[in-house]
Amino acid sequence: MTKPPVAPRARLLALALVLALATAACAPVPRDPVPRPSAPQPQPPAVSAPAANQRNAACQGTTASLRPDGTELVRLPRGGVIDAIRQRGLRVGVSQTAAKLSSRNLRTGVVEGLEADLALEIARAIFPDRDPAEVPKLIEYVAMPTRDRFLALETDQNGRFPPATNVAKVHLIIADASVTCERVDTFGVRFSVPYLETRQALLTYRGTDGVWDPRTGVQGRTVCSGAGTVNLARITERGGIAVPVVDTTDCLVQLQRHQVDAVSTDDVILEGFHDQDPNTEIHPFPPDTTDFAAVAVSHRDDDLVRLVNAVLERMRGERMRALYAKWFGDRPMVMPPADYEGG
């Protein structure tokens, strides 16, 4: 009779619990948010550069060229490399990815540009007896990524460097190669007289105002350039973060993919980049540095060096001006003076 009313309260509690559980089961389960990962960047090609040794020691070889005696174009030097070329054809190493200098139409394989035209002039001098229309077929262009350019020459130095044995061998390299003493010493290169004067410049996107002013320098900025080039060292010297790539044109990809702040290389190459992406602009890269681009030949092939020099000297003046105008329009350009051994 005096039982406390526990049972109804317990029942009530149980009911409340069941209700609470039922409500919880009906409540929407919090779902995972829709994933939003960021776009990965392509990995730039790893660069292990067989680069020219940066050395401070005095130059062992010489950057001076060999003076043609004027007979090369009249009477071809017999024996040696010229005969070999006349039998097998002329193999020319070109960048192939530098617009206006040398670029290959991938569909046809035809190489066009100022450097391709130079190669044609040289070939015409080596094959004076052939139909000029047939001469282009006697030239075989081999693409030279910036980093590996000089390995393609058959020199004593390259013979001692194992990876160089795999590179297709060429007679001439016409690939905006700046004349430097390191290259003479490291790769056994003999340069011709220069055919182009270049300035290192800087390419950025337009509208970097407010973020940084490229004219004030590259301090702390990532700047891309070809591995093994003179440009790369200058970026570091000026406080920039140098990003080396196997081929200079990879730099344009990196800029377009927003992986670097700027590209720095010769102004002639940057003009080609600007043509391909008009959303960019070219700035000077102070202090003003001038490089000379020349044809690179093996130190073993003196005859070929003289013949190339003879061809270039013949073009000096009107014909070279016409060639500059053909590829670079009204840009003021002048063929640099020759520097011959023995003055």
């Binding site: 090609p45 192939q96 980049f273």
Partner: peptide, 24 residues
């Protein structure tokens, strides 16, 4: 697209793509 315009940067794009594909 670049290659069809005979813009040499096309080769670089194809190279980087192939590298990404093969190596990773």
């Amino acid at each position: 697209v670049y290659s069809s315009r005979v813009d040499p940067v096309g080769t670089s794009y194809l190279n980087e793509a192939s590298l990404l594909l093969r190596d990773t």
